[in-house]
């Protein structure tokens, strides 16, 4: 009785998608551009290396945000909270409890993901603007806790003297060593996002992004996958927060303020939301560009806002979308 519907299918006729050399180039171009910027910083060292290093840390944070906002089409203004948990976790455990960096980072990660679970479970039932407001509140609350819980976080003073990451006894304290380590971290993050994107999990995210009703009708547990996406984003946020405190050696509430949220949104949209390379190229461009206009420093936030608006008008799919436009696909 249980005949499988597959028997009604005709013989498989696989039509592989053709990939032109031009398309390969269009895909590689943003990566090559990013590699050029990082390569320059590696060679020059000094201040450019510091700027690019921060950009790479942001690239990881924004990649996580991209899983939730790009792949899953949800909105969160509160991811800074999870970066704060990771950052403070690493800073407190290494300076006050003499943990080494790796277990401290993992503990911070576990705490951030646990917090995301506790926060996400009730709030992800909210939709659209309500979810945005709830997540904005989470970011502000985390910032407030970092300021007020002085016995642990030292308030505005911040925690200094966080040791750099060391691997097999070798401290990654030089510009170039730090930059190399961060590059490896960014590549690993991008690799993870790329694999998630092209998997059953990524398709479930894309399904609920496209239509929650249709996704549920196909058996996708929308609430579960939304939460999973939120946890992944929180995990990458925490990872980037931990990297930040080890690279800078210092953490204060200011690091995880609303400015961080604005900056990361700019990077995501400038780079290209929903793409793998977008967060990386966006983080690099948004970090490096202001340095070329140092005289405008007071108007930095204004410039970000203007850049965001101009990009939304002229390149709605971000810089990654512009690169993709190089690829002129033949119509069948």
């Amino acid at each position: 009785m249980n005949s499988s519907p597959s028997t009604i299918l005709p013989k498989a006729v696989s039509v592989p998608a053709r990939v032109s050399p031009r398309r390969h180039l269009a895909q590689a171009a943003p990566w090559l551009a990013a590699a050029a910027v990082v390569g320059y910083a590696l060679v020059v060292g000094g201040y450019p290396a510091t700027v690019v290093g921060f950009a790479l840390i942001y690239a990881i944070f924004v990649s996580g945000l991209n899983i939730f906002m790009g792949l899953t089409a949800q909105v969160s203004f509160g991811q800074s909270a999870f970066a704060a948990i990771g950052g403070y976790g690493s800073a407190i455990l290494t300076t006050q409890y003499d943990w080494t960096w790796a277990p401290a980072m993992l503990a911070g990660l576990a705490a951030a993901v646990a917090a995301a679970f506790v926060i996400g479970y009730p709030t992800l039932r909210l939709k659209g603007h309500y979810l945005s407001m709830a997540t904005l509140a989470i970011g502000l609350i985390a910032h407030e806790i970092a300021v007020q819980w002085e016995s642990v976080t030292l308030g505005y003073l911040g925690i200094s003297g966080v040791p750099p990451i060391d691997i097999a006894g070798f401290e990654l304290s030089s510009d170039r060593a730090t930059l190399t380590m961060l590059t490896v971290c960014v590549l690993a993050t991008a690799f993870a996002v790329a694999r998630i994107r092209r998997s059953r999990l990524g398709r479930a995210f894309a399904g609920l992004a496209g239509s929650e009703d249709a996704a549920r009708a196909l058996g996708i547990d929308v609430a579960r996958y939304k939460l999973l996406s939120f946890l992944l984003a929180a995990g990458f946020a925490s990872f980037s927060g931990s990297l930040f405190v080890h690279v800078v050696g210092y953490v204060s509430p200011e690091v995880f303020s609303l400015h961080m949220v604005i900056l990361s949104f700019t990077m995501l949209y400038v780079g290209g939301i929903g793409t793998v390379v977008g967060p990386v190229i966006g983080a690099l461009v948004v970090s490096v560009l202001p340095e070329t206009f140092r005289a405008l420093r007071d108007y930095q936030d204004l410039a970000y806002g203007a850049a965001l608006i101009l990009l939304l008008i002229f390149a709605p799919r971000g810089l990654a979308g512009l690169f993709a436009a190089l690829d002129t696909r033949r119509k069948p």
Binding site: A192, I196, S199, R200, L201, L218, G219, I220, L228
Partner: peptide, 17 residues
Amino acid sequence: VGCHLRTRGGLLAALLR
């Protein structure tokens, strides 16, 4: 996406493939 119910695999399958 429609094959969701007839396939298996979560985060680990996606990452480790």
